[in-house]
Nucleic acid binder design. Structure first.
Length: 554
RNA sequence: GCCCCCGUAGCUCAGUAGGAUAGAGCAACGGAUUCCUAAUCCGUGUGCCGGGCGUUCGAAUCGCCCCGGGGGCACCA
């Protein structure tokens, strides 16, 4: 709907230019928004005010001229008004609202799937936790946001690829192997001083006993440096399988798990660094190699090869991003914890040095989750092994409630996650509020079925019977859904969908309490049934994008 | 010290790429169920949008300065 009005405005502006009413120039971005207040019409545009300074005329006068040149070929506009400082308010014909119901009927499970992506290839990389332990609550938020963002993009005609980057080449992995080895020795009765920087969780002991069960004591006599790689590989493998399993239980699947070690194959990282050196982005200060990230606005240059000859994590990350782009992605989206924000300028520099557009890399930051139980904070620390795993949360509160809760805030703001509240099936828990609306509609449809009413079709339904403000409001919400989805995709803000769902469910519940859908009036019943069926489709489509189920009964 | 994010109702937060009179949920209080599910609905309040200055026709939103909270400032990942 928005797009139609934008098109009408664009045509009007061209006509005005052609008729010489004002001098031609580049058209500003034409903005049309839905109004908050219905006395301002249904949609409004500020275009006249945007043009005012360039044309050096009064906004209201410009608005007037524009309105005189509007050609409403589709016949959607009832009237326009010029209001306030120069808004053009559009009042649409009432029949328009019912028209959206036809779209819902026709498109069904694809209703709302606006085409903003044009089939562009987008990669979303998320979670990407080291396989040094199970995923915990902090990973869960990034996992859901990444997954839903990918769904949102897929629903807006992007060719989406989900990827998990396994940081399995660094120091931390060595630490993991060492931790398991020490527990292994301990379990064999040796006296071991367990270092503080090793992983303390119980899962480490479990891994050690697995190795004992498999290999017995053969590793006791071997030198530490020889045996650690074995322990590391074993532990990482098992943990990674566990991670995949936990993600699966949360409804998250990846197209690819990409191992950092791939990057080092055939000397890949070193070759890349040499290429960048040829392009003069890298210099040496004697025994260290530096990347000139300051060329691209970073606050200081960054080390890519350390004094000991080892490449840094950043070096591998440049290689990884080149690998991504070489696979043909138009846009690469990285989902990172907010504590990595300082990393953005250098990563951006890396991407630009490789010759890719700055805009082709987007980073979404995920703020910390405060885990609470009945309002009291739950203490957590990975190293000490005191943490609540993602699996525990999903098992305790359920997949739907967990996912929905992680989507109720902007991802860059802190989130309080209260286990007790999330578990409670009450009005404190919005996921049930929305699902209940869906279940209620299903219940209405069951009643209609019992009364032998057939499902109404668009052609034979008399939508002029839908005259209540609530009914018009609901239809407007249905029309708005594609626009909300589009906004979520453009701004990479999946939380917009939960807010939309809460609004829609609220309007429906209110309507339900005041009005009977199935009544003695067949024509009215048909029209209302059609409306609630459309609402159900929108609820279902939006919930599906969130990865939350749409129950038919509750 | 430098950089980033945040500061909106008692609490938790929205506020649609600067728009018209700043919203919702929770909590509190009072009501609604012979009728499609009461996990619902209806009603009752509250705001120096942290503060100041500026840009603009117009600022919660943009810029600068302060105050307060969090995070980051590795040849760690």
């Amino acid at each position: 709907m928005k797009e139609k009005l934008v098109a009408v405005l664009r045509n009007a502006l061209r006509t005005c230019e052609q008729e010489g009413l004002w001098e031609a120039g580049t058209l500003p971005f034409i903005e049309v928004d839905w109004t908050k207040d219905s006395t301002h019409g249904d949609y409004a545009s500020n275009i006249a005010m945007m043009l005012a300074s360039r044309l050096k005329r009064k906004p209201r006068q410009i608005a007037e001229t524009i309105c005189q040149h509007l050609h409403d070929d589709e016949g959607i506009i009832e009237k326009t008004e010029i209001a306030g400082p120069g808004f053009i308010n559009f009042f649409l014909k009432e029949a328009i609202w019912a028209g959206c119901l036809a779209d819902v009927e026709r498109q069904g499970a694809r209703y709302g799937f606006a085409d903003v992506g044009g089939g562009k290839k987008v990669q979303v990389e998320f979670v990407s936790a080291n396989p040094t332990g199970p995923l915990h609550i902090g990973h869960a938020r990034g996992a859901v946001v990444g997954d839903v963002l990918a769904n949102v993009l897929a629903a807006t005609n992007h060719d989406v690829f989900r990827e998990y980057y396994i940081n399995d080449a660094g120091n931390q992995m060595n630490n993991l192997g060492r931790s398991v080895l020490y527990r292994y020795r301990e379990l064999q009765g040796q006296e071991v001083a367990f270092p503080e920087n090793c992983y303390q969780g119980d899962y480490i002991k479990a891994l050690a006993s697995d190795i004992i069960a498999r290999d017995g004591d053969v590793h006791l006599k071997k030198a530490e440096d020889d045996v650690i790689p074995l322990f590391t590989a074993y532990a990482a493998g098992v943990i990674m399988e566990g991670i995949k399993d936990d993600l699966g239980a949360f409804g998250i699947k990846f197209d690819l798990y990409f191992s950092e070690r791939e990057l080092y194959r055939d000397d890949g990282v070193a070759k890349l660094l040499r290429e960048l050196e040829d392009k003069k982005f890298i210099y040496s200060d004697g025994d260290t190699l530096w990347f000139k990230t300051t060329d691209f606005g970073d606050e200081k240059d960054r080390v890519v090869v350390r004094q000991n000859g080892e490449p840094t994590y950043f070096a591998a990350d440049i290689a990884y991003h080149r690998n991504k782009f070489s696979r043909g992605f138009d846009t690469v989206i990285d989902i990172w914890g907010a504590d990595h924000h300082g990393y953005i300028p250098r990563m951006s520099a890396g991407v630009q040095a490789l010759g890719y557009n700055k805009e082709s890399l987007k980073v979404v930051l995920i703020q910390l989750v405060n885990l609470l139980r009945d309002g009291k904070p739950v203490a957590m620390s990975t190293r000490s092994g005191e943490f609540v795993t993602m699996r525990e949360v999903v098992d305790e509160v359920g997949r739907d409630a967990a996912r929905y809760n992680f989507l109720m805030r902007r991802s860059d703001s802190h989130l309080d996650f209260d286990l007790e509240v999330a578990k409670r099936q009450s009005n404190e828990n919005p996921v049930y509020y929305v699902q209940y609306a869906h279940a209620r509609i299903c219940s209405i449809l069951r009643t209609a079925g019992e009364r032998q009413l057939k499902t109404p079709d668009y052609a034979t339904t008399d939508f002029s019977r839908l005259v209540l403000p609530e009914e018009i409001g609901l239809m407007k919400m249905i029309i708005r859904f594609p626009e909300v989805l589009e906004g979520a995709a453009k701004m990479l803000e999946p939380h917009r969908l939960t807010f939309f769902l809460n609004d829609l469910a609220g309007m429906f519940h209110s309507y339900y309490n005041k009005n009977k859908v199935v009544s003695d009036d067949p024509a009215l019943t048909a029209a209302r049934l059609f409306l609630v069926i459309a609402i159900r489709v929108v609820l279902h489509n939006a919930l599906t994008i969130l990865g939350v189920s749409s129950p038919e009964k509750m």
